[in-house]
Design a protein around this nucleic acid. Sequence first.
DNA 1: TCCGATTTCATCGTATGCGCTTGAATTACC
DNA 2: GGTAATTCAAGCGCATACGATGAAATCGGA
Lengths: 148, 148
Amino acid sequence: MTKSPAPERPKLGEFLCFAIYSANLAFGRAYRPILDKLGLTYTQYIVLVALWERDDQTVGEIGEKMFLESNTLTPILKKLEQTGFIERRRDPADERQVRIRLTPRGSELRSHEIGNELFDATGLGDSFFDVQQSVARLRDNLMASLDD
Amino acid sequence: MTKSPAPERPKLGEFLCFAIYSANLAFGRAYRPILDKLGLTYTQYIVLVALWERDDQTVGEIGEKMFLESNTLTPILKKLEQTGFIERRRDPADERQVRIRLTPRGSELRSHEIGNELFDATGLGDSFFDVQQSVARLRDNLMASLDD
DNA sequence: TCCGATTTCATCGTATGCGCTTGAATTACC
DNA sequence: GGTAATTCAAGCGCATACGATGAAATCGGA
């Protein structure tokens, strides 16, 4: 997205959208060798992080936090159920909703502190949290701009 | 990725990897209505940006700039050929390589200044370029850490 | 020169993302 | 109390990503 205002013809390296896009690829690749050992993909791992924060959520609630719809989440959740990390069960009080719960195996992973290994690899040092805040704000602003 | 060192149990919002992941989703959605009109996807648009910077590149050269392999690029390039934005031709001097050239239709889009519409939507103001630089550095550090 | 190693692109299977549609369950409204 | 509107998950088709593999061309050392 969005080029430098100065030069006539913006280069790829000047696009913020490309920086985000390629940083996301880089994170996926950095996480892969760690998550492969656990039999998880990157997105599946994020789902578990959301469930560690609060267990027993509906598909819609998880989707709201992850900015995803059920059409994307359902196959991921079914896979996580298949591999034994979570349980899927219709809410008896409202049969439209499917509630997601961690299994003991899913809960256990929480203690692995998976993410910490990568703190150094980011090379951001003290600015780590500034960048995190800025990118989160960028995301929220872009998402908000979609409601027009 | 990588939680705050302070709290016992990091929340989703504290993960830099999730900030990047979700910001990338947000960019994709912000670009979609613009690119839909041109018959392009987000990734296809990035390919064209790379070609506007320098025309007549091999698949491998484009891949190096975009951090992608031929297995991902080939279908995208075939689609761009199908829709008439680029040309694919084997290099007569080295038949292993496929050279990618813009068609007149592909070159023409350069003047549309597509990305500029989104500058305001990022809400970053003066810090736009700082964030861009930080995220690019983050990406480069992560990618470099993969070579171990 | 000849043959194995390397380079380069392409193919295949799996896993996301997402728009669109479907279908079941619930709620709202008359 | 019956029907329309809404909600929620799921199914489907398309477009990335990526590891593994394959195939063709080139290179390089004996």
